[in-house]
């Protein structure tokens, strides 16, 4: 399963996943979820029409933003990882060094080491609630008190059994497009999980 550019979506794991997605669309979400964009999901959650949203720590600041959520909303929210002890791994930043001489390259590496140091990661968490990239960072109590939700999430994520890689970076782009345009068919029961898997496989196999 841990592979890039998947060409076969008809395996039992995928069929099982698509069956679960279909069930969630049919029974556990709002009508605008089909074809809906992020703002539909976010608005429904922030206006308390839905009890759960699958999202990351970047959304936490919205919980205390009075222009987006009602007062005290953040106190009602708790964090959890996915059933089966899994967590979605969404890398945020990456760096490339394009310096042509060693002196500049070394200086850039020094800067990157500073930007990714424990101190800066902790400062990012303290100041703007950014999730530290490293799993080895001990969070001081005063920072934990300031950001209880993200601290809770960090603890849960560090104890996760599985890390799901970002499929947007692992699948062929046309497979992702096929996924989004065919979701309504799956959600509205116009397509079985098997047919959905076949569609994705056909799209993936257009790539050489």
């Amino acid at each position: 399963m841990n592979t890039t550019n998947i060409k076969d979506f008809t395996t039992p794991e995928f069929i099982d996943a698509f069956t679960k997605i279909q069930k969630m669309f049919k029974e556990y979400t709002t009508t605008d979820a089909v074809g809906g964009k992020y703002e539909n999901g976010a608005n429904n959650f922030l206006s308390e029409k839905t009890a759960m949203i699958a999202n990351g720590p970047w959304m936490i600041s919205d919980f205390q933003d009075p222009t987006k959520a009602p007062a005290g909303f953040i106190d009602k929210v708790g964090a959890a990882i996915f059933p089966g002890q899994g967590v979605f791994d969404a890398p945020m930043l990456g760096f490339f060094i394009a310096s042509k001489d060693k002196e500049h390259a070394d200086a850039t590496v020094t800067l990157l080491k500073y930007l990714t140091s424990k101190e800066v990661q902790l400062r990012g968490l303290e100041m703007v609630g950014t999730m530290p990239a490293s799993t080895n960072i001990e969070i001081p109590q005063e920072v934990a008190n300031k950001h209880p939700l993200i601290t809770e999430l960090i603890k849960l994520a560090n104890g996760a059994k599985y890390k799901y890689n970002n499929y947007q970076g692992l699948w062929y782009p046309n497979t992702l497009d096929t996924l989004s345009t065919n979701y309504p068919a799956l959600a509205l029961n116009k397509m079985t999980p098997q047919e959905f898997a076949k569609k994705l496989t056909e799209a993936a196999n257009k790539n050489k």
Partner: peptide, 23 residues
């Protein structure tokens, strides 16, 4: 709709775009 659901609202310019720039 991006041409969905399935290909129900797909037209030739959009299909051309997807074939060229996504595939």
């Amino acid at each position: 709709t991006k041409g969905g659901p399935a290909d129900l609202t797909l037209n030739l310019p959009l299909y051309l775009y997807k074939t060229a720039l996504i595939e």
